[in-house]
Design a protein around this nucleic acid. Structure first.
Lengths: 338, 338
DNA sequence: CTGAAAGCGCTAACAC
DNA sequence: GTGTTAGCGCTTTCAG
C-alpha cells in the first residue's frame, strides 16, 4: 500500500506538502504541486480513509436511513437514495446505507463512532422516535419528510398540503362538486406518516373553501381492495365525478374498474393522481398528476446537509412547491350532475 | 468524546484490556470484563470507526454498487439492497452505497482507500468493465448477476436459464404449442444484461426440446408499447395461446389488452410472469409466476462475502433454483387450437 | 490473565 | 511557500 510518506519521498518534499496539495488548504508553488501530482500518479496513491478520518475527525461519509417497510412506493425511495448518493459524491462525500431496523440505535452508533459526519433520514413519522436524539446531537442532520414539531430540525419535503389543495382546485375548476380521495393503505395513516396526513389537510381545507364535498378512503393496493373501496364510495356518494389518488398501486386498478363499469375517463369522471411522473405517463390513461420530485428532494437534502457541515446554513424547512401537470385523465364535470 | 483510554482509566485497567474485552480476542477474567463493560455503559463509550480502521486495516464496511439506470424493475434492486444492508449488519458490517455513475473508478477508489473491506456489485453486464479490476484486486467481491466469464469471480443469481425452461415446461404441460415472450426493453438486451439473455436461452432450448414454437419480442413498459407489441405478435402468430412475460411494467398492460380483446385468462390464453411475488399477487389476474428471490440473493451475496473475508469460501457461482408458483393466470390450452 | 508501548497513515498547528 | 512534529484513538505485538 502506498502511503503519503512514500509520495513525499518520491517527490522530494515533506509529508505535509503532499497533504496540502491534496487538501488545497494552503498555497503551493506550481512546480511543487506538479511534482507531487506526478508522484501520486506514478505510485498510484490513494489516501487512506481511516487515517484521514482519525486525523481530521471527518469521515466524509453521510449516513442515509431508509425505511425497511415496503408499503410505501419503493421506486420513489430508490430515486431519492440514488439522488442523495450521486449528489453527495459531487461534494466529496460517500453514503452509508442504514435501514430503519436498528431504529434510534443506529443514530447513536453512527454519531458515536464518527462513522458518518452527518445523516439524512427518510420516511419520518410525525412524532418520530429518532428526533429527540437528533436534537441533542451536534451532528448535522436533514429529514426528508416533515414531523409535527420541526423545532431545531432541518427538513425537506414536497409541500403536500399545497399538493392536496392543488388537486381539489383543479377538479373544482372543472366543475366537480363531489370528490373522492383514494388514499394510502390504512397502516400509513395509523403510523401517522406526515405526508399522508398533510395531503389530507390540504384536500379538506381547500374543499371547504371551495364548497366541494370530499370523501376520503384509505386503500390497500391491488385490484380486490380497490374494487371494494370503489364500490363503497359510489354507494355512499353516487354523484362522485372526481377522484384524487394518492397510492401508486391503486392507480391502475381504479382505471380498470372505472372502465369496466362503463365510466369513461375523463368524460364521466376525472382522476388526478399524486405520483411519480413515470407512473402517470405509463398508466392506461395518461394521468393528470402532481409529481413527487424525488430527485429534487434528494438533492436539496444533501445541499442542506453540506451547508451545515460547512458551517453555513441554519435549520430550515424547505417545502418544494407542487406542480400539477394536466394530462388526459381530467376534464369538465359531466353536466346535469350535482 | 469518550475514548478507550478514558474507559480504561475509569475501569482501572489498561487500554489493551478494554480493547480485548471489545474484540474478544483473548480471554478476560469475569470480574475485569464486568468492570470494563460497566465503565463502557457509564461513560457511553463508542469505539471510533476511523481509529479502528486505521489500526486494524479493516473498515467493517461493505460497498454495494447499484446501477443508476431506472429501466430495470426498481423494487427488486431496492429489496436486494435492503437485504444486503440488514444481513451485513448482523455480521457487524455497514454498507456503503455506490451508484454506478463512477463506473470502474469507484472500484479503484474504494479498494485503494480502504474505505470498504469488500464489495458487492449489482446489475452486472455480460462483459462488465469492472471485472478486470476485480480480478486483479485482492479485495473480496461478489457479483449479483452472472457475467459471461466467471473465472476468478464469485457470483450469486437466480438461475434464469432454468427459469426460462420452467416457464415453457409449465405452458407445454398445459398443451400450449405457440408461446410468445414479452421481454424487457430493447435497451436491456442491447446492453447484454446477463439475466435477460439467459432467460431467453432457457426458453429457447426447452422450447426446441418440447417442440413448442417460441416468439420473443422485447417491449418497453407501458400501454402503448405493449399494445403495439401484442398486435404484432398476434399478427405474426395468431395461434398464440401462451405468454411468458419478463417485464414488470408490461404485465398489467398485457392483461388489460387481452381483456379488452375478449381473450379470457386463463381460458383462452395463459400468462406466466417472471416477476416479484408482490407484482404477481397484485395484478388484476393473480399470476402464475416464477419469483425473483431478491432477499435470498442479497443474503447469499453477503454470506459469500463474509466467508471470503474470514478466509473461508472460495470463488463459486451460486445459482438459486427458480420456483414456479401456479396461480390463476395459467391453464389448459383451448382445444381446437394448433 | 494483564500491561506497556509501538505504530497504523494522515492532518494541522507551529516553526521558518 | 515549505518543513517538523505532535498527536488522532485504536490494535497488537512483546513482556510479564
Amino acid at each position: 500500500m502506498v502511503t503519503l510518506a512514500e509520495v513525499a519521498q518520491h517527490a522530494g518534499v515533506s509529508a505535509s506538502t503532499v497533504s496540502y496539495v491534496l487538501s488545497g488548504k494552503r498555497s503551493i508553488s506550481a512546480t511543487t504541486r506538479q511534482r507531487v501530482e506526478q508522484s501520486i500518479r506514478d505510485l498510484g496513491y490513494h489516501p487512506n480513509a481511516g487515517a484521514r478520518a482519525l486525523a481530521s475527525s471527518r469521515s466524509n461519509i453521510i449516513a442515509l436511513m431508509i425505511p425497511l417497510r415496503t408499503d410505501m412506493y419503493v421506486p420513489v425511495m430508490m430515486e431519492i437514495a440514488i439522488a442523495v448518493a450521486t449528489t453527495a459524491r459531487t461534494h466529496g462525500y460517500d453514503v452509508l446505507l442504514l435501514t430503519g431496523e436498528e431504529g434510534p440505535d443506529a443514530v447513536r452508533r453512527v454519531t458515536g463512532s464518527g462513522l458518518a459526519d452527518a445523516m439524512i433520514l427518510m420516511d419520518v413519522q410525525l412524532d418520530d422516535e429518532r428526533l429527540p436524539l437528533l436534537r441533542e446531537t451536534d451532528q448535522p442532520s436533514v429529514l426528508i419528510g416533515l414531523p409535527s414539531d420541526t423545532t431545531g430540525l432541518t427538513c425537506v419535503d414536497l409541500d403536500f398540503t399545497a399538493t392536496g389543495a392543488l388537486c381539489v382546485e383543479h377538479l373544482a375548476k372543472f366543475g366537480h362538486r363531489d370528490i373522492a380521495v383514494i388514499g394510502e393503505a390504512p397502516a400509513v395513516y395509523e403510523r401517522h406518516t406526515g405526508f399522508a396526513e398533510r395531503t389530507l389537510d390540504g384536500l379538506r381545507s381547500r374543499s371547504r373553501e371551495l364548497g366541494v364535498r370530499l370523501l376520503h378512503r384509505p386503500c390497500e393496493g391491488g385490484y380486490d381492495a380497490m374494487a371494494l373501496t370503489l364500490a363503497r364510495i359510489l354507494d355512499e356518494r353516487p354523484g362522485t365525478t372526481g377522484f384524487v389518488v394518492q397510492n401508486e398501486s391503486a392507480v391502475e386498478p381504479l382505471l380498470a374498474l372505472l372502465r369496466q363499469q362503463g365510466r369513461a375517463v375523463p368524460e364521466d369522471v376525472s382522476v388526478v393522481a399524486v405520483c411519480p411522473d413515470q407512473v402517470a405517463v405509463q398508466a392506461s390513461v395518461r394521468l393528470t398528476s402532481v409529481a413527487i420530485p424525488a430527485q429534487e428532494m434528494g438533492r436539496h437534502a444533501v445541499a442542506q446537509l453540506i451547508a451545515k457541515l460547512d458551517g453555513r446554513g441554519a435549520d430550515e424547512v424547505v417545502l418544494i412547491a407542487p406542480e400539477l401537470t394536466v394530462r388526459a385523465s381530467s376534464g369538465p364535470a359531466p353536466s346535469g350532475t350535482s
